[in-house]
């Protein structure tokens, strides 16, 4: 339970960090909160030769409103606990606020970063599913420049993202909640703070009594956060009701092919996906009307 030998850099500026990444690319890993990377290194499952610690880069922290309030931008190195308690997040991206307590434990959220969780791309992580449900976008930076990656393009496989080895995730932008919107998150885990056996994030927008827009994303049912277009299709254009929600939730099994592991069989996961989808949709609908 001791990591193999590695070199360690702690750049003081973002430029410095990006140069180091450009130079070392494949052999290097950036270190954010270390709550996933360091255990993996101690198990010798991850063996980066070089660690580039982002801890000193104030350019990568902070939460602000942009575009006349349409979006909220969260710096990748912002600690999860800061996001959880931030008034802008609570008010304008309440789905994130609601989800944060499900991520690990307060001690871990004090160290773990928002961007670290997104970049780590654990299929059982909550925040990637929330990013997908919200339709946010990710800002990737490298020495050569920057680019935006939409949420649905960001996750490319098991623990894989669209980030290149010489790129890092600098920030994400999430759309602010608007009138007529409802949202909810829930999950089932063995113990509070555990990675979920299954979890669902949903966002609905209604106008004149019908669902105009919807998005539903699940975690722990595939290689990464998993969208549920079949559910959305049933919801959009319809007046929300308990019956509609139930029919839509049942359709979630068409969008997932969950894996089995020690804690949940595929059948149990499908069952949970239906149950939890129904629960979040019910809560989201309540929020629209309430």
């Amino acid at each position: 339970m001791k990591p193999p030998v590695f070199d360690y850099f702690a750049p003081n500026t973002l430029d410095e960090a990006l140069s180091l990444l450009a130079e070392h690319g494949d052999e290097a890993k950036v270190l954010a909160g270390g709550q996933s990377l360091v255990p993996a290194m101690n198990f010798r499952l991850a063996r980066p030769e070089i660690l580039i610690d982002l801890g000193r880069l104030s350019e990568l922290t902070g939460i602000e409103r942009l575009d006349g309030g349409q979006n909220v931008r969260i710096g990748a190195m912002t600690r999860q606990r800061t996001v959880e308690r931030h008034p802008l997040v609570r008010k304008h991206v309440p789905l994130v606020h609601e989800t944060m307590p499900w991520v690990a434990h307060p001690q871990i959220r004090n160290r773990g970063t928002f961007g670290g969780s997104l970049a780590h791309a654990d299929p059982a992580a909550e925040l990637p599913a929330v990013l997908l449900a919200l339709g946010g976008r990710c800002l990737a930076k490298s020495r050569d420049g920057e680019r935006w990656i939409d949420a649905q393009d960001f996750y490319t496989g098991l623990f894989e993202t669209a980030l290149e080895p010489h790129e890092l995730l600098a920030a994400v932008e999430l759309p602010s909640v608007g009138p007529g919107e409802g949202w909810a998150f829930t999950e089932m885990s063995r113990r509070h703070g555990d990675f979920a056996l299954c979890g669902v994030a949903a966002r609905l927008k209604a106008r004149d009594g019908v669902v105009e827009e919807a998005s539903v994303a699940l975690l722990s049912v595939g290689d990464g956060p998993t969208a549920a277009p079949s559910v959305v299709e049933i919801l959009v254009g319809q007046a929300p009701s308990a019956e509609l929600v139930s029919t839509a939730a049942d359709a979630v099994v068409n969008d997932i092919d969950p894996p089995g592991d020690l804690h949940a069989t595929p059948a149990y996961r499908r069952h949970l996906a239906r149950t939890l989808t129904r629960r979040v949709l019910t809560a989201a609908v309540d929020r629209i009307s309430g």
Binding site: M188, T265, A267, Y268, R270, H271
Partner: peptide, 20 residues
């Protein structure tokens, strides 16, 4: 027991298996 095991116990039985 576990939630998963309870699910299996309840659903592997005849009659109940079909509800899934």
């Amino acid at each position: 027991l576990s939630p998963n095991r309870l699910f299996e116990l309840l659903h592997d039985r005849e009659g109940i298996a079909s509800t899934e």
